[in-house]
Structure formats: C-alpha cells, structure tokens
Design a protein around this nucleic acid. Structure first.
Lengths: 129, 129
DNA sequence: TAATTAGAGACTTAATGAATCCATAATAAC
DNA sequence: GTTATTATGGATTCATTAAGTCTCTAATTA
C-alpha cells in the first residue's frame, strides 16, 4: 500500500506555493522545473488541486497557479484527498451481511491516520525544500 | 491507496482459525471454501503467514494450518505486515538532502495508524464471519 | 493580434495485482 | 512400503493501474 508519486509531487508543489509565492501566480513550467518533473504531467495534479478548491488558476500570459484559501487552512489531508480520492483503504470482498467487523477495525485505523493528516497544515513546514 | 484483496483474505482466514479451530489443523481446501476463494490462491497468503511466524503448517493427510502463537498475541498489524510487507506508504522521490519534512509528516501519520492496528488483536472480534 | 498559459483527451509503456496451473516434497493412514 | 492427502514453489496469464508523453483547444493578457 503506497501513495502515488503524484501525491508526492502535489505536496511539494503546494509547499512551494505556500512558502515562496503566496500571492503571485506561478507557472506550471517554473514549478515543474523546481520539482524536476515534466510540465504536462505536473499540470494533471495541479488541475486536481484546482478542482478541489485548494488553488486558483490564472490563464494567459504571466498566469499560473496561486493559493485560493489562506495557508493555515490547507491540510495534508486536503492535498492527499485531492489527488488520491477519498475511497477507503479497505473494502471487504466477502458478502457476509452489511457489517464486517474486520473492515470496521481497519477503517477505524484509517481514521486515526486521517485525523493526524487533517491537523497537520502545509504551512507547518517552514523550511522550503 | 488501498490494501490488497490478499490482505482481506488473510485477515478473514486468521479469524476463522482463531474463532473456530485454535487447535486442530484446517486444510486450505476447507478455508478456501468458507471464504469463497480458490485454494491455490489462498495458499500463497497462508504461506506468507507461516513465514511471518503467525501460523504453523502441517503437511500430509489430515494436515493443514493451525495457530502458532496464542490468540491474544496476534494483532491486525501482524497479519497486514505479513501480506503487504513493511515498506512505508510514502517515499519522497525528490533528492533534497536526507530529510524531507513532508515525508516526516506522512510517516508520522502512518505510525498513528500502525499503532492502532498493533493494539487491536484478531481475537477482539467475537462473532465469526 | 500574437504570445503565453492552463485544460483536456488520447495514447504508450511499465509495473503491479489477481489468479490459475502444474510439478514437487512431505507426511500420515492403510 | 505404498498411496492418498496435503503444503510449497515457480511459471504463466490476464486485467488494472500508475506514470508519463503528445497534441489540440481555450482563455487571457501584453
């Protein structure tokens, strides 16, 4: 079980926007260069972040992406959910009634992790990478 | 990010061993029938559980699998690790020094989840599925 | 109007998950 | 001892997903 690399890129891209350019739009070209990834690929993730309401896109010359919400509101969980979706990590494939106790336990565990990620904000990280 | 179905099967197989046959060996044929999965496929997971030291295999006629440790010692995390391995859910792909703060946060979150799964034992579940 | 930028879709490639099949080894029952 | 029963292991297949590229379109600002 692993988070996709896309999540890795998205988290780093957001960290850049928060720590270095909270106001001015940053082009995907520049972001991609900083992260060492292709612009067209990175734009897929940025589009997802736009649809999740985390950032705002500005088309046209001197356009790019800038933060939408205030920094303090953007949690790790927000970004991860934007890229990975919100499906659970576990779904019982056996059909034994409606409630699988095994599934309950694993989902409770997942909630522990999500709660932690919800409380950690991207602005908590000071040093830009 | 999702646990594999193999983990699902393994958890249910262990629940069966714990709740219905802690002493007598159960054949993979019978287990597979109960879970509705093919015996040859299930045996792959059971082999992993053997190598992880959770169960014991008894070859030959009337053989099968039985618990190795005492029930109370077998946690959800033990079973999950046996099937999924112990690799982390996140690994930063950028090479910025040795410590990525983003990775630190995500790994801390994972530890929250693992701690929960370590404390929940398979014997906590009473009702057999 | 032209240059710059995001957005969207089709497509390719590689990796992984899910599952089957078969051949081998070990052991208990007869 | 021989045979039936069971686990073990490897090779293989199929489908799905991840990762990434390419190209065309749309929007907007200089």
């Amino acid at each position: 079980m692993k988070y996709s690399q896309a999540t890795d890129y998205a988290l780093h891209a957001m960290l850049h926007l928060v720590s270095e350019a909270p106001d001015k739009p940053v082009s995907v070209h520049l972001l991609a260069e900083k992260l060492g990834v292709s612009p067209t690929y990175l734009s897929k993730m940025l589009t997802k972040l736009v649809k999740a309401g985390l950032i705002h896109s500005v088309p046209g010359a001197n356009g790019g992406y800038r933060l939408r919400r205030s920094q303090e509101d953007i949690s790790f969980l927000d970004i991860i959910h934007a890229i990975e979706g919100t499906a659970s990590v576990f779904e019982c494939s056996l059909n034994h009634g409606s409630e699988c106790q095994i599934q309950q336990v694993v989902l409770d565990a997942e909630r522990q992790m999500e709660e932690y990620l919800r409380n950690r904000k991207i602005s908590d990280i000071t040093r830009p990478s």
